[in-house]
Design a protein around this nucleic acid. Structure first.
Lengths: 235, 235
DNA sequence: ACCTGAACACCGTTCAAGT
DNA sequence: ACCTGAACACCGTTCAAGT
């Protein structure tokens, strides 16, 4: 082994030249680890071992990084969706779409920051378009008119990619505080009743009050059923 | 008229003392006018005629401003929902809920920044809780078990407040570009077909391709129907 | 062509000081 | 009690300069 100087080490790092792809991968990793808020150009540069300003040779600006992140996730989703085993849509479009959407959901669960990003920047990137094209093709094979397929996209909304818009996280509820609980019963009798009922069913507490996966599938099945009824009525 | 000095004018402004309420109203106005991104503490201070640092006597920090904005919108929604005329839920829960949700939607259309804010910060503010309590009460009156009412909240998601999560804005489509159109037909045959079909129905062009209000109501009705089927099946 | 250092114009927020 | 000015520690981004 020849002795190595610091200069050697520094010189070796840039062997792999920086690229848009590598920048975006690093950005995704950073977001996975520390959340979207901690994704700054300076920290991102540090992550790939470069000065902040070098990033601008590969991405136009920070907005472009966010757009790129959506692409990265959607490519991952497309890959997962293609591997999902499901019946051919001609035989059972509901099962086919269901399996694909649940596969997409698993990708999103690995990238918790993705829904927020997709929600706030509804971009027309090729990756999103490709995904929609895939879904429409599936619906068409299942007997949908173009018109009803269009409608179906809107009904599904973000659920097509495997996430649902929640208005609040019941997990944060200070349900253990008895005084707060009583006050809540006064001001919000219906919610309090609902909570009490759920606790009755699940004596362990309210931790598992909302099973996101269960609720997601319940909602998805309700929607798929509604779409099937409209498809059948039209044909 | 006595001559006025600059000092007089300056002295007169703070007649109305700053308050949390006034800060939040100004923040909402700023967001309405210039969007959420241009809402900075410095600009907000300027809006209420004060130095930036004075704001911190009325709100803890910028996060608290955002939380406050959600409250402002939800208060407005609660007011609109209570004024919406609809049958009593005991007679027709679907019509009752539908009218309220569409009333909420009108408030959100006046505050375009609100969905994004609500989507990214699912907070447990009293205003949100109050709204949910209201909805659960309505469903209960319509014959729902607590359990199914809980499920209904999840199925509705953000639609309970009158907005849907869209994955992209078809309005941005460069559909007028014939070359791009042809390329799209190759890569995305299903979407291209859907678009062509829609244009056929609406020869004016693709501008009105997606009627958000129509799609929202279509999806809402599909969901309400599905919920009613489950309610009827359970009873 | 690719990367850098210094600089600019902004942020949110703290703190000691004013009235 | 309420407001301020100066300052701090950060941002994203530009630009001229390096290799």
């Amino acid at each position: 082994m020849t002795p190595r100087t610091d200069a050697d080490e520094v010189a070796e790092r840039p062997r792999i030249p920086l690229s848009r792809r590598r920048v975006l991968r690093a950005a995704a990793g950073l977001a996975d680890r520390d959340g979207l808020d901690s994704l700054t150009m300076r920290r991102l540069a540090q992550e790939v071992g470069v000065e902040a300003m070098s990033l601008y040779h590969h991405v136009a600006n920070k907005e472009a990084v966010f757009d790129g992140l959506v692409e990265v996730v959607l490519d991952e989703i497309m890959a997962a969706v293609e591997e999902a085993d499901a019946p051919p849509p001609e035989r059972d479009w509901r099962a086919a779409l269901r399996a694909r959407i649940l596969a997409a959901r698993e990708v999103l669960l690995r990238h918790r920051w993705a829904p927020q990003l997709i929600a706030t920047r509804p971009t027309m990137s090729p990756a999103v378009i490709a995904y929609y094209d895939h879904v429409v093709g599936l619906l068409r094979a299942g007997g949908f008119s173009f018109d009803l397929a269009h409608r179906a996209l809107h009904v599904l909304g973000s659920r097509a990619l495997g996430f649902a818009q929640e208005l609040f996280q019941p997990g944060d509820a200070p349900a253990d505080d008895a005084a707060a609980m009583e006050q809540m019963a006064d001001r919000f009798p219906n919610l309090a009743g609902m909570l009490a009922d759920a606790v009755h069913d699940d004596p362990d507490g309210t931790l598992g009050f909302c099973d996101d996966q269960f609720e997601f599938e319940f909602a998805l099945d309700l929607i798929l059923e509604g779409l099937e009824r409209r498809r059948a009525a039209a044909s």
